[in-house]
Design a protein around this nucleic acid. Structure first.
Lengths: 147, 147
DNA sequence: GAAGATTGAGGCTTCAATCTTC
DNA sequence: GAAGATTGAAGCCTCAATCTTC
């Protein structure tokens, strides 16, 4: 099972694990956040991103979320419909609009962050303490390999 | 960074890594397989599953793929439309239908498996050899924690 | 009633075409 | 022409209702 060169078997093992993980995590249904909140994952991500640093243009948001601009356009429309977001004209660029969280949006983002943190804390607790660091490191390695 | 009890920071770290991984892997667009093949991921998974052990009922396939039975129904319809799948009545159960790969379907499954194996082999190669086993083990640990 | 399967409605995403502004 | 943004069309998925068979 352990070898110096990547064998067909190892690749198969990696594939099986990744596929299982993706399915088990419910990643094929993008309409519900894995945290159980009744809002789309992309909206939750958008809120988190806008909490980190605002204001943001739609194009910038799309790049961070890896979503098409058309998706972002509709996504932003929904967030505004919820009263969580505000669209302001960019003083420096007539084409762009700047996105800003409303107070209600900030609160929603905070609650979502808490729920998500709790979920991940539970997940972390289910991992043996002496393996946590290794799992975190392995995910970093995997991300690095993806680039 | 390393602690015995799961801290808020560790949970945050796990969350960030998982979110980054999901986005980088293109998991928010279920219509294209990550392997670059022009068919939906669910169809590729279905083919792989039916290669493992056939015949399978739609309900069974749905459970393995973690897809709704309605999704499976349409998915099977498409696979049949491609000439890759055949639907047979279950001799033991009048409600059920048995799914069997056609020769063309088997060939498509093989090609898909090769392409996917190659993709994962490349991914594995991008991981330092002395860390591969650790990454595999970490994914197992993560899966275990998800249950 | 329970389980396998199908159909209709609605949501999220991409792609392509379009408009406006740089 | 390039970039920000919007709109229409199509694909994949879930949920709910329905039909058939156990």
């Amino acid at each position: 099972m352990s070898d110096v060169s990547p064998t067909q078997t190892d690749a198969q093992a990696l594939q099986d694990r990744l596929v299982s993980f993706i399915r088990a995590f419910g990643l094929h249904q993008p309409e519900r956040t894995p945290c159980g909140q009744p809002i789309p994952v992309s909206e939750a991500h958008a809120l988190a991103e806008l909490t980190r640093d605002a204001p943001l243009g739609q194009a910038q948001l799309g790049r961070r979320l890896r979503l098409e601009k058309s998706t972002v356009s509709r996504l932003v429309g929904q967030l505004i419909g919820r009263g969580w977001l505000e669209r302001r004209p960019d003083p420096g660029d007539g084409r762009a609009t700047l996105l800003v969280l409303t107070p209600a949006g900030q609160q929603a983002a905070d609650e979502l962050a808490s729920a998500r943190a709790a979920k991940f804390a539970r997940l972390l607790e289910a991992i043996p303490a002496d393996e946590r660091e290794a799992v975190l490191h392995a995910l970093d390695t995997l991300m690095e390999a993806l680039r």
